[in-house]
Write a protein that binds this DNA or RNA. Structure first.
Lengths: 210, 210
DNA sequence: CTCCTATCTTGACAGTGTAAGGATATGGGC
DNA sequence: GCCCATATCCTTACACTGTCAAGATAGGAG
């Protein structure tokens, strides 16, 4: 299938035409993570295949096992990494926003949506899939951190009730999810500036005391 | 596996101990749909297996093909049926709500959430999966009807802008999705009456002119 | 240099979706 | 009553998937 005959490895002299990928990849773990996300983005959440990921990384179909155990392990690690970048996307928005609590909260919501639109399949893996193991310490921690960040910001913006938290979270999450699956075409097709303006206006509706 | 030897069928006399399910099921199509939803609810969106569905319906693994073509066909039909019941859930709330446009809109949002909490996996199939074929006339029509119902109600409640539609939809959708995946435990664990009160209060925040 | 360990490959197995063709019932025409 | 056209369901086969077990290979510690 690959056309690579399983020939024994000779010392990699210059005359070796086929550039022999070394037996040991060097950084297979992160290579598999990027390959996994690429596969996820191209073929979709449902058609995800561990063997395809391995092939994309140029490695045998059983190589991922050593680093991640099984497919769930890979997806768990990928989701955890996703949650960290998810928080980073929010931080990026917060850094350029006004420093008052309300603006910071809105900025976090914008980052929430940014991430979902930029990497919709990863977003789906994190929020709507049960393939990752959310009991994993790594993933559990990363996911909880994302949630806690929101709760903190709502509190700083004057939110005190469960309803305040739920309202802001649900609104941001709903916008993100609908935009990620391209169902809010009236909003998603706007140019970035206009979209930002509309989104921030919408998010403000959920703010405590609005 | 089933213990049913592939013996030829003799006339079903009373002495026939093993009650022979007739060769023709009678209503296999709808039996497969219910089996599919049950499998979906029990084993989750990702572990869905066409062969398990067939086994649950007491039929060979290739029997679904005749009625639905392939797995995507079955899931498409299931999602379409889901959208119809989704609208019915909203109608049920609207029927018992005050008749002013704002209350009707809130009621529709509550029905939105009701459905997601009652049948989370089906909700996920409809909104976050790409396994159903959304270009199918049947599913496309059902999904569009659900969307149109919301747009109409927003308009009647005084909504005029894209932002109004997006705000109400996203808030209801976010609540539904987070509750379906059990991430809003502070809301989801309330008793129905208290939860209704909180949810309607939240949804009202997104209303135009609130 | 030797050996230990981590890394990667090969090969096998059960389970999956789908296609092709055979078996069985149902009903309409005679 | 008989015959067959059709719809329904089954059996078989194939490629692909995830996982496991066992072997091959490299790199580093001693």
């Amino acid at each position: 299938m690959t056309g690579n005959p399983p020939r024994l490895r000779d010392t990699p002299t210059a005359q070796d035409a086929t550039p022999p990928r070394p037996y040991h990849h060097g950084d297979l773990r992160s290579a598999l993570l990027s390959a996994a996300e690429a596969e996820l983005a191209e073929r979709g959440m449902e058609a995800f295949s561990l063997r395809s990921v391995a092939k994309r990384a140029g490695v045998s179909h059983a190589a991922p096992a050593h680093h991640f155990g099984d497919a769930q392990g890979l997806l768990t690690a990928l989701a955890a990494e996703g949650f960290r970048q998810f928080l980073a996307a929010q931080a990026a928005r917060e850094a350029v926003a006004d420093k008052d609590p309300a603006s910071q909260l809105v900025a976090a919501g914008m980052g929430y949506v940014d991430f979902a639109m930029a990497r919709p399949t990863l977003f789906r893996l994190m929020w709507q899939s049960n393939r990752p193991d959310f009991n994993s310490p790594d993933l559990g921690l990363a996911a909880r951190a994302a949630f806690q960040h929101l709760v903190d910001q709502v509190a700083e913006a004057g939110g005190r009730t469960t309803a305040d938290e739920a309202a802001v979270w649900a609104l941001a999450h709903g916008l993100a999810d609908l935009l990620a699956s391209n169902r809010l075409r009236g909003v998603g097709s706007l140019d970035p500036a206009a979209r930002d303006a509309m989104l921030s206006g919408i998010i403000r509706r959920a703010l405590p005391g609005a």
